[in-house]
Amino acid sequence: MQTFEFTRPSDVTSAATAAASAKTAQQGAEIRFIAGGTTLIDLMKLNVEQPHMLIDLNRLPLGDVETLPEGGLKIGAMVRNSDLAHHPAVLRYYPVLSQALLSGASAQLRNKATTSGNLLQRTRCMYFRDTTMPCNKREPGSGCGAINGANRMMAILGTSEHCIATNPSDMNVALTALEATIHIQNAQDTRSVPINEFYLLPGHTPQRETVLEPGDLITHVTLPAPAAGAKSLYLKLRDRASYEFALASAAVIVTVENNRINYARVALGGVGTKPWRSQEAEQALAGVTPSEDRFRAAAEAALQGARPQSQNGFKIELTKRCLTHALKLATQTA
């Protein structure tokens, strides 16, 4: 761990301006924002991240959850995961988000972790986190340790020959199903990015994980108004009962009218290099009468492009069961 400069700006513009001179906002950035610190501090101790400057966001006025006049929700970047999970509007209109948040980490970590921090949560790939090991994400060109190593936990969707690291977040899976929009401000202007365009596939550049550029600061996330009559839930499967990253998870939102599904949103976790929206599954569900066979068919569609590694082939079947069961539970209560 090396020494670094620590600053604590009082407004968003100066925070964004302070970060603008960095060469990258991606892996190895020499200037980093710090919110809850639950990922970054770990990685700094491991020498995976070695920023020269930390910009503390904890004093910025980004800690509110607001109901939007046109329906929908605005979630400040600094809202703590536990506060968000227990927010009345989230519990009532977006239960999938509350469930996803509460299935992640531990109570202590959720009390520290923030919305924007969770959006930028880094992979738990063992090779990424160990600087003596090859990793194209940490050190482009060094190779992928996981492909011929311990890859049981690794991704089966969106992988490349350079990287198979899983996006570990639960929250991001729910936000993807909810079609969240991420709002970004830099020194010059603001912009908004749909969550499904926010994350990049590893391809040849696994070190680039998001569309963020130097000086980009996530200020808040918005959720559209919930679909009328929508039921949503998050189902997470893992080895032990608590405090573990997903082997497979599913966030589903459905509405059923006249015994037909007329709205379905599906995202998968624990299996993708990014939070995995499955429009294939959504299409397979559109207009159909809910049944176990239809859910299974949707799950088959979602996993069609899956590419397993030597140790994680079981994730294909596990994810299918996860999604099928999540759809069953969501439509039972619908």
Binding site: A150, R240, A241, S242
Partner: peptide
């Protein structure tokens, strides 16, 4: 390689 308490899985209270 799994030399940490996230990747070396032990029982939690919930288990």
């Amino acid at each position: 390689i799994n030399s940490n308490l996230a990747d070396y899985v032990v029982s939690t209270h919930a288990d």
